[in-house]
């Protein structure tokens, strides 16, 4: 096994039978000056699949997310979603049906929970400015629909009691859940969760896993970055391991768990990646 290249060719294991991948990332590369944070990463995600993205700090996981969502235009490579090649513009990506949460919470701090979710629905609603000013029927219908969807999502994530609370006043765990609600508001086909369990207690973590399963039941695919190994091994259909910007391996959780390269990477016998550099940069850069 140790002689195999980093990116094993051939069909990806764990893809739900009969379903075409909805996301196809090919050779995604992101360089910052001399630093290659993401180096030729391929990723396929099938409909309804939960994929875990793991790797040590600085492996390029968040940078890869930023490339997928158009925050960083990738230096090389292509991203295809539902058969359409994505332009690296965040609002186009959102329209296409990919949405995400953030490693460090990025809610709109001074808006209410409900308003946050309604903003999340922005790209799925239309209102003529004139209709809004005249408070015409189109405006009222769109407004009612957006409000209803937002309330439904809040109750889906068990946040109804916080609907009119200012986002920054919410408990930490609820802020994370609110980010998920907001991300789901755009009716995405693919949800990217960046360390959703960070800062949660074991009980909340358990509940989060159930929530993600419920999200999958609604027909969404999910890609999760997480450091909590127990959480991720019990959650995901398939794991992708990144190290130093490259894909180390991928497979079912039990396969990955047994892979000696993964063990080496995590135990540090393999040459360690410079910790934190690329990833930190990725989360700090605005």
């Amino acid at each position: 096994m140790s002689t195999q290249p980093a990116n094993p060719p051939g069909p990806v294991s764990g893809t739900a039978p009969g379903s075409e991948p909805i996301l196809q990332a090919r050779g995604v590369t992101m360089r910052f000056g001399g630093l290659t944070a993401v180096d030729g990463v391929d990723l396929d995600v099938a409909g309804g699949e939960i994929v875990g993205l793991i790797g040590p700090n600085g492996a390029g996981k968040t940078t890869f997310f930023n490339c997928l969502t158009g925050l960083y235009p990738p230096t090389a490579g292509s991203i295809t979603f539902r058969g359409q090649r994505l332009a690296p513009k965040p609002y186009r990506v959102a329209e296409a049906g990919i949405s995400r949460t953030f490693q460090n919470i990025r809610l709109f701090p001074n808006m209410t929970a409900l308003e946050n979710v309604m903003v999340g629905r922005h790209c799925r609603t239309r209102e003529g400015l004139l209709s809004a000013i005249g408070r015409g029927p189109r405006y009222r219908a769109a407004e009612r629909e957006a409000r209803q969807t937002a309330r439904e999502l809040l109750s889906f994530l068990d946040l109804d009691r916080h609907a009119s609370a200012i986002a920054r006043s919410l408990p930490y765990g609820d802020q994370r859940k609110l980010e998920i609600a907001r991300a789901m508001a755009s009716d995405p086909g693919l949800l990217l969760l960046d360390e959703p369990a960070a800062g949660m207690n074991p009980r909340e973590t358990l509940a989060l896993r159930e929530t993600i399963f419920k999200i999958r039941q609604r027909g969404l695919s999910v890609v999760v970055i997480e450091h909590d190994m127990r959480f991720i091994f019990n959650l995901c259909d398939r794991l992708v391991v990144l190290a130093r910007g490259r894909k180390l391996t991928e497979g079912r959780p039990d396969e990955v768990r047994a892979d000696e390269r993964v063990i080496a990477t995590y135990l540090g016998t393999a040459p360690a990646a410079a910790p934190g550099t690329a990833e930190q940069e990725a989360s700090d850069a605005r």
Binding site: T69, G70, L71, K89, P90, Y91, V93, A94, E95, S99, R100, F102, R106, L107, F108, P109, N110, M111, E115, M118, V119, G120, H122, C123, R124, T125, E127, L129, A132, Y139, A142, E143, A146, R182, S186, R286
Partner: peptide, 28 residues
Amino acid sequence: WFVARTRSGRAMQATAQDPDTARLMGID
């Protein structure tokens, strides 16, 4: 009313508070 009760108003508020995240919500 415009800021709190219309789609454009909320989007503007969101852009002011966090422009990058707002872009990810599909706001131009």
